[in-house]
């Protein structure tokens, strides 16, 4: 046992709530599901994409956990390493993506639910594709 572990520490604050622990649920999450179903319908009908900024809504951590557990996990999980990790995960409902941006310290900087066939951030920008193309050409000319 290291000397550090001999320091008596006990955590008083309750750990983040989960479904089993309904403390902290505000009831603000269920209406969001209705909004999502509207958005998915729009995506199907017109192809219009939607993004919902979760930090702009009065949701507690428990609400977010509830929502995350309700929406479930889909087949695709995209990880983006750009100034901290970002995860763009498909939920059990295809077309609904849970997007979380972390900073380099690992803290969540913003969180969105995106309703789209592919999240915006995953697509490559034409200018970047062009830069890649130039690189490819250059590489092949050196062969």
């Amino acid at each position: 046992m290291s000397p550090l572990e001999t320091i008596p520490i006990h955590v008083i604050n309750p750990l983040p709530a989960s479904l089993a622990d309904p403390v902290g649920l505000t009831g603000n999450a269920p209406p969001l599901l209705h909004e999502l179903s509207e958005s998915v319908r729009r995506l199907l009908d017109t192809g219009e994409t939607t993004a919902i900024d979760l930090s702009a809504l009065p949701l507690t951590p428990a609400d977010l956990v509830w929502l995350l557990e309700k929406l479930g996990t889909g087949e695709i999980a995209v990880t983006l390493q750009a100034n901290g990790e970002s995860t763009l995960n498909e939920t059990a409902c295809p077309g609904i993506w849970w997007v979380t941006h972390h900073n380099e310290q690992g803290a969540v900087t913003s969180q969105f639910i995106e309703v789209a066939l592919v999240p915006e951030l995953v697509k490559a920008h034409p200018l970047d594709v062009k830069r890649g193309y130039e690189y490819l050409e250059l590489m092949m000319s050196d062969l």
Binding site: D53, L80, S110, F112
Partner: peptide
């Protein structure tokens, strides 16, 4: 060495902070 996606991500967070709709980030 800052990629476009890094920059997009920053703008998305900034738009969120400024209470702009998510589309404004783009």
């Amino acid at each position: 060495g800052v990629s476009r996606r890094t920059f997009l991500k920053y703008c998305a967070t900034l738009a969120s902070m400024m209470a702009l709709p998510p589309a404004a980030g783009l």
